[in-house]
Computed example of a mutant assay.
Amino acid sequence: MRHSLLLVWGLALGGCAWEPGQGFAVVEPSVRVAYEPLASRAASDGYQRLSSDYQVRLDSASMRLSGIELLASASGSGSGSTFDPSRPPPGYSLCHGGHCHRDDGALVPYEQVAAEMGGGGGSSAVVTLATQGPLDLLAPETRSMACAPECALPQTQVSQGRWSVAALRLVGTVRDSRVPARFQGERAFELELPTGTTTDAPVAILTGSVDLPSDRTTPPEAKLRLDLVLTAALFDPVDWGSLVQGDNPVQFDDNASKALVERLSQLKPQAEVSRGE
């Protein structure tokens, strides 16, 4: 009798985990984005050294995400086309520096473009994650995310996360460590992207690996922690000397903004998955 009751109880628990209509995995996502000073770049007064011998200190930094798509490899062999950066596929205008310019303004990494062309069948989004409001990069917090259409995933293998950065704001000061200096003293700067545009295109697209199987062989509950770390290396490609005019604050031009966005697009977000017992 006792054995029978234990058996029924075990079946009931199993039914709770795998009820008909539930997803093969139920994801519980969170995100954290931070700007982290590096000890190897540390200078006095909270500044960080750049490869150009300029030094930057951030006083305020925030990022807003329009969404993070979890991508899974699609079945099928695809078209079999070979990706060639010198010949952008339909929907793209230019490929260089490790990414292609999509017609909607997004910067898409070579690997993703190649996958979309049919290598291995391409990839598709199974769920889109979103969080409200801007993320403070200098006081980072782990924030929960909502799922659309739902957090219950179909049977699939999530292999990638595609981040869409909707806005970025960086406020700080820059100075020159060379002697003689290319400009004197500290200069304030403020970069806000997008800059007064009405387009809905993201500022940047970032992609990172995710290993999240959604099947009957792994526990259904899956906590997904997504992390992105920015450092002073973000500012390395900026030609600060060309942006300083007299005693005025630094004004970012299109070239400087594009250089920074391209460096941002090269960052690889991290994903950590932990499964329920």
Rank of each mutant, 00 (worst) to 15 (best):
H3K: 10
S4H: 13
S4E: 15
L5K: 11
L7C: 12
V8P: 03
W9G: 12
W9C: 14
L11V: 15
L11M: 15
G14P: 04
G15M: 11
G15A: 15
A17N: 10
Q22V: 13
V27Q: 05
S30V: 07
V31A: 05
R32Y: 05
R32H: 09
V33M: 11
Y35G: 00
P37L: 03
L38W: 01
L38E: 07
A39F: 10
S40H: 06
G46E: 03
G46R: 00
G46P: 01
Q48T: 06
R49H: 07
Y54F: 15
Y54Q: 03
Y54R: 03
V56A: 01
L58Q: 03
L58C: 08
D59Q: 12
S60T: 12
A61R: 01
M63R: 10
L65R: 01
L65E: 00
G67R: 02
G67I: 04
E69L: 04
A72L: 04
A72Y: 06
S75E: 15
S77R: 12
S77H: 11
S79E: 09
S79F: 10
G80Q: 06
G80L: 08
T82E: 14
F83W: 06
P85L: 07
P85A: 08
P85Y: 07
S86F: 10
R87A: 13
P88S: 06
P88C: 05
P88A: 06
P90M: 03
L94Q: 14
H96N: 12
C100N: 04
H101G: 05
R102F: 02
D104Q: 06
V108M: 03
M117V: 09
G119S: 12
G119M: 10
G120R: 03
S124Y: 15
A125I: 02
V126L: 13
V126A: 06
T128A: 11
A130N: 09
G133S: 12
G133K: 08
P134G: 09
L135V: 10
L137E: 01
L138S: 04
T142E: 15
M145P: 01
E150A: 15
C151H: 08
A152Q: 13
P154K: 05
Q155Y: 11
Q157R: 10
Q157H: 13
G161I: 00
W163Y: 11
V165I: 15
L168C: 06
G172L: 02
R175G: 07
D176Y: 05
D176S: 06
S177C: 03
P180D: 10
A181L: 07
R182H: 10
R182L: 14
Q184R: 11
F189R: 01
F189G: 00
E192V: 15
L193T: 06
P194F: 09
G196K: 09
T199F: 09
T199V: 12
T199S: 15
P202G: 08
I205Q: 01
L206Q: 00
T207P: 00
D211S: 14
D211M: 07
L212A: 03
R216N: 10
R216A: 12
R216I: 09
R216M: 09
T218M: 11
E221N: 11
L228K: 01
V229P: 03
T231F: 01
D236C: 00
W240Q: 00
L243Y: 03
V244P: 02
Q245E: 14
G246N: 05
P249T: 08
D253A: 09
D254E: 12
N255E: 11
K258Y: 05
A259S: 14
L264T: 02
L264S: 02
Q266Y: 06
K268M: 07
P269I: 00
Q270C: 00
R275P: 06
E277G: 14
